[in-house]
Nucleic acid binder design. Structure first.
Lengths: 215, 215
DNA sequence: GTCTATATGATGATAGAC
DNA sequence: GTCTATCATCATATAGAC
């Protein structure tokens, strides 16, 4: 179902406040409520966080509803089923059509550094890390999610990079493996000292290796 | 409502399908059966497989019992609770006191190659890959498992390597990240072409990088 | 749009019969 | 040692009232 029917403008509402139900702080005039816009987004935000933390199987619809402070039945109402919530929450985890050209558009002798910086930039940002972590965690134990992530990696990222610059696919895989592995150690397992290392330290450490793979 | 009559679903006492044997060829005289040895091991074998496939949270005790063809209550009888099964199944996923010296005992100019070969050897073997995959999958979504794996990595593997050879810990982390990331792409996500690459191809591809980190 | 109520089934765990 | 029976809790999903 498309979100064709959106109420115009007007975003003031006490929907997600600390208290719900009777007695909002904001006085609302007569007329219909602002519509599903806010609730829908609240559910998606909660879903992204929970999928990121627990993976697809570990994040329950009820927990998502609880976190978004809505009724579990509403989640079904908006998205049909759990898979619907997931694919919607995973929409545009990152935009490869922007990121890949940015990395590969760098001077040939700085490909490695640029890729490392791009990776670190995305993973440092909570908002952008969440959907990626969600995909990764889900793909580790859920076959459907694994297929989704594999397709995304091969066609949207690796393929785009390979055909445009003639870099052997195996080397792209190795470079990606280096970055993914480091991100898991840093952000998931939180192994020291790499978890606390600064971005600059990591750029210095990893750039030569990625450069070696890509050039 | 109490569902009093639950169909057992399988025949009375078809004990084990695969003959796991006692291991020693000695003929046993009359008397009582060898005890719980077989059943216990069967449960652990099934647990290792299921934890490897689904991770800690995804593998249920009932599924483990089903796979081992024993009653679910037996699992509790032997191991107390789910955590008990897990720690028992994870006993000696690999022996760091053998592997680390083997890698670091190599000639200095072949450290990288030796580490890559050791990694590939362990991961290529289904029996040895299973418990590692189980730990990794579990650690991705379960905090307790993550602590377990982090402790194991830092103290048993990285620490041992670092203090003995004066290699900066951050470089060890980076090398481990490279190998872990590649193993995930190869064995979990099964991204091509790295999933189908031969061991020799990977040795050629990865050894220089690991060498660079460790030397 | 929102919620109550409910159908249906799986999970971890325990008590106790043989 | 092995199993039946049961508990309390959680899950996904649906039907339908307001």
């Amino acid at each position: 179902m498309t979100d064709a029917a959106r109420p115009p403008g007007r975003s003031a509402s006490a929907r997600r406040g600390t208290e719900r139900g009777t007695g909002h702080g904001t006085v609302r005039g007569p007329g219909r409520r602002p519509g599903p816009t806010e609730t829908r987004e609240a559910i998606l935000a909660a879903a992204r966080d929970l999928f990121a933390e627990k993976g697809y199987d570990g994040a329950s619809l009820r927990a998502i509803a609880r976190s978004a402070e809505v009724d579990p039945a509403l989640v079904h109402h908006f998205f049909g089923n759990k898979e619907g919530v997931f694919v919607e929450a995973m929409r545009f985890p990152l935009d490869p059509s922007r990121l890949v050209p940015r990395v590969l558009g760098a001077p040939r002798d700085r490909l490695g550094e640029t890729m490392v910086r791009t990776f670190l930039e995305v993973w440092s940002d909570d908002e952008r890390r969440a959907p990626i972590l969600a995909m990764l965690r889900s793909a580790m134990t859920n076959e459907q999610a694994a297929v989704l992530l594999r397709e995304f990696l091969t066609s949207a990222l690796f393929g785009r990079a390979g055909e445009a610059h003639g870099i052997p696919m195996l080397r792209i895989n190795a470079a990606a493996g280096q970055m993914i592995g480091v991100m898991i150690l840093r952000y998931v397992l939180q192994v020291e000292p790499i978890a606390s290392a600064s971005s600059e330290e990591l750029v210095e450490l990893l750039s030569p290796v990625i450069q070696q793979y890509l050039a």
